[in-house]
Amino acid sequence: MRDYVIKRISQGILLVIVVSILVFAMLDLMPGDPINIMTDRKVSEEVKEQLRIEYHLNLPLHQRYVIWVKDMLHGNFGKSIKSKLPVMDMMKARLPVTLKLTLTALLVELVIAVPIGLLAAYKKDSIFDRIVMDVSLFFTAVPSYWIAVVFMLLFAVKLRVLPLSGFSTPLHYVLPVASLVVSGIASTIRMTKTEVLDVLREKYVLTAYAKGLKKKSVLVKHVLRNALILVTIMFFMSVPWVISGAVIIENIFTIPGMGQMLTSGILNQDFPIVQACVFILAILTVVCNLICDIITAVLDPRIRISLGGEN
């Protein structure tokens, strides 16, 4: 198990390095000169040249990469071209906001979706199952921004029970979290249902019944326990996705999160910001994959054995 974790961590580090090179190189391929965007047309060539030197844009790509990595290792992601603020400080303010938003949404989603999926599988083809499946099909088809706008109209404008936008109090998070949950919950319900249906067909479920266990114990101890292995995997795999996918919701509710920072960074060719954001997302992906692998190994003894030998 320990060897396995060490192996996975080193693989992860390698992956982060590769991604960082890609991110760095690809931004360089983007058309347009960032210096032209940040300066007015009247600014003289000398001043522009000086700015280039300040941002190391006069150096070849590989040298710039080395400087970037060195700075980054010292906790310095450079300065934003647009706002002139250190990217690190901007990130520090925004990353927690995004994490708070998306992790809450994911947790709420799981807590609601898993029991519904379990019940829908257990009562397959019942009215409950059919309603759940139809409704979830509807919400899969509807984009999250539409739901967000409808929620805003309904709860903030018409009923005036919740704040329209912002992020200062927990109440402000209700609508954004709800929009994220509603748009993502359908797939989780469907996935849980499919997985539970698969497990229900396993022989050991019959064994559990045969030894005299009650339905509820069979469902929770034997069916759900095994179905949750896959659900956990999907959960952790979707964390980085949700963070980058929360962009739209963040924009609609004017929540200053990572997503908003990334989109405006791309639009302004603010390359230090884009590099930092993509890099952080890459690290998050790698970390989530790692957590996911370790948790699966803990949940499923078969994987544990095939990995390390000892448990």
């Binding site: 396993e202 022989k203 050991y204 019959l206 064994t207 559990a208 019944y209 045969a210 030894k211 005299g212 266990l213 034997h222 326990r225 095994n226 292995i229 949940l299 499923d300 003894p301 078969r302």
Partner: peptide
């Protein structure tokens, strides 16, 4: 079930819960 009638299944490979 279990208390008065027990049952053994065909394939012992997947009759026990792997976890």
């Amino acid at each position: 079930r279990g208390k008065h009638i027990g049952m053994i299944f065909q394939n012992p490979l997947d009759s026990l819960n792997p976890v």
